[in-house]
Design a protein around this nucleic acid. Structure first.
Lengths: 340, 340
DNA sequence: TTTCAACACGAAACCGTTTTCGTAGGTTTT
DNA sequence: AAAACCTACGAAAACGGTTTCGTGTTGAAA
């Protein structure tokens, strides 16, 4: 990289002090018009740009927000990140994005690096492995160090910080109720293991809807997907039973269910209703297209970053953690309709 | 944020100088074992972490790579970013991600901010609007300032910097040839306007394959999608002609084509073959699943970041820009098969 | 006893910028 | 003519760390 021009260079070249240059560049009244013009002309001509690092060190703030996600090749997370970026930009912040790849170890390492002053605050969605082993010390440490932190989607209650979540219970309830209203009775639930809290919460909603309709939850209709194994095979098992509806807690599970249903000769939506989660491209372009619960990822991202910046700004005040719940919507498509 | 513990604090508390502390923390032989142990114990106990900003200022490098993408809710770009992140991490770098949202103005602004010393180098894929208005001054300025820069996918020849691209002509050729080998004669091309260079190149491949098979390119079979309008409607027009194959230059166009074909009573792949681009989830979960050209986005990202870091490391040397071409593969699925 | 090296540590400069506090010189007030 | 006040600028500290170059104290070699 070419050596950048600094205030010192300008000062030396023009035979003034660095303080004069600094003041002249911000049009201070302390400096005579003549000197100011001379300095500004010089700076302009040589394309002077203040060095960010120096400013950050002096101001003790970076105007950067760290974002740690489990993964990005995923419609929901990439939507959230778009929201975060837009919200950050609006307030003059930039984002530094890292991925935990669902790994506990990488999450710990990333957090350690980013909390060394590189960022003014963090937005995190917890890795599955971390949720599984329930080791949250690295995250709680951030709270202890009073580093502004917002958790989203994959949150855990015992960490005392701001949070932004989807109304997962409500969403699970809505989805299941929709199937029930379609006249479905034997509804399979394709979900995550229970340590993934969003899965657990959606399951609660599912069970709540069933209970309200006097249907006993049948454990054999619930599949907890182990993503280390073949997803399709695991879902196929539940199709050996007599089912007429599927509620899948994400797009991939829903798309797989759809494929299996068709392979097994089901007519979707005539003899089988399928509902998914995350209103992504798969659901939209599948055929038949899949009814889903839209999570409003963009809104979540934006809310998360706004909450964070608010916290950054009034860092000194005592505060009680806020929790924002984003409601989700049923997005009707072709994969569900009343049973004939 | 809680006031962080610094070398100064430690020095004062332990009655030594900052230089001693600094050396002790890096286990220098200049310091006695006794003193080192004392200092290290103290630092450990109070969870001392060196301030990144200070180091960056002193070393004149940030170990951060700026990444500017047109968008992220897009399988190809999110895959690339995964590759970039992994490659960067392996070399001790982090990434700062920004989006141009395909807008020229935002691209200019973002570039300006990031080139102020916040990053050691940049990886950029150019926004559509910029490609359209052909105004590349902001990017050329980076080259002039000798800021390490790698362009990928959406590149332009007149900018003299390192580049990583897909073999788009070859890919277009491969895709079209595959359809021809399937016995298709009237192949529609669903592409972007010509200013999007990847679209133009894939079209070249398409035309090359047709010429080789003595087929005259029929302009009425080529649709240049204007993304500001309804995509599906634009594709539907070409279906009014007598076609038996579709080559779409991305997943969305392919998925739309598939939908239209089915709506119009075509049997895919029996009476109509469809091939797409970008081996994403839509193609995988569509039914029938869509044959595509896989772009190896992960590899591209990784190569791009490796190229960039190489450039960053030997910044002083004269160098001639490199161009890495990633070859693409045909991924056979259900949407293509020999016509019966 | 003198000389010299090794050891263990400190002083100070440096990275680029901002900001407080002087201060020299001229002008106005009394 | 002395006192007071501007005006226009500079010196220096500060942000947090690294690193070069001393330097005082030992102990050993000459």
């Amino acid at each position: 990289m070419k050596k950048k021009i600094t205030i010192k260079t300008i000062a030396k070249e023009l035979g003034v002090s660095t303080s004069t240059v600094s003041k002249a560049l911000k049009d201070s009244h302390e400096i005579s018009t003549e000197t100011k013009e001379k300095i500004q002309a010089y700076a302009n001509h040589y394309n002077y740009k203040p060095n960010h690092l120096a400013l950050q060190l002096r101001n003790q703030k970076t105007k950067v927000i760290g974002v740690i996600l489990p993964k990005i090749v995923h419609h929901f997370f990439s939507t959230v990140i778009t929201g975060i970026e837009e919200g950050a930009n609006e307030k003059g912040y930039h984002i530094m994005v890292c991925f935990s790849n669902e790994s506990y170890k990488k999450e710990v390492e990333t957090l350690k690096v980013l909390s060394n002053g590189s960022v003014d605050g963090l937005i995190v969605s917890i890795a599955k492995e971390t949720l599984e082993n329930k080791n949250f010390k690295h995250i709680k440490d951030l709270v202890t160090e009073e580093i502004p932190l917002v958790l989203f989607d994959r949150v855990v209650d015992e960490i005392l910080c701001d949070k932004v979540v989807v109304d997962d219970v409500g969403a699970g309830y809505k989805a299941t109720k929709h199937l029930l209203e379609n006249g479905r009775k034997k509804i399979a639930l394709i979900t995550t293991p229970n340590h993934v809290n969003v899965g657990a919460l959606r399951r609660q909603g599912y069970e709540k809807a069933l209970i309200e309709n006097y249907i006993k939850t049948d454990k054999s209709l619930i599949v907890e997907i182990d993503e280390k194994q073949d997803i399709k095979k695991q879902i196929e098992k539940v199709f050996e039973q007599d089912i007429d509806g599927v509620f899948a807690v994400n797009e991939i599970y829903a798309a797989n269910s759809m494929r299996i249903a068709k392979e097994r000769g089901f007519n979707v939506p005539e003899d089988m209703s399928i509902i998914g989660f995350t209103d992504g491209l798969i659901s939209e372009y599948s055929s038949p297209s899949i009814t889903t619960i839209a999570q409003h990822g963009f809104t979540m991202g934006k809310q998360a970053v706004e909450l964070l910046i608010e916290r950054i700004k009034k860092e000194s005040e005592v505060y009680s953690p806020k929790k924002i719940v984003i409601s989700s919507d049923l997005k009707l498509r072709e994969s569900t309709k009343p049973s004939s």
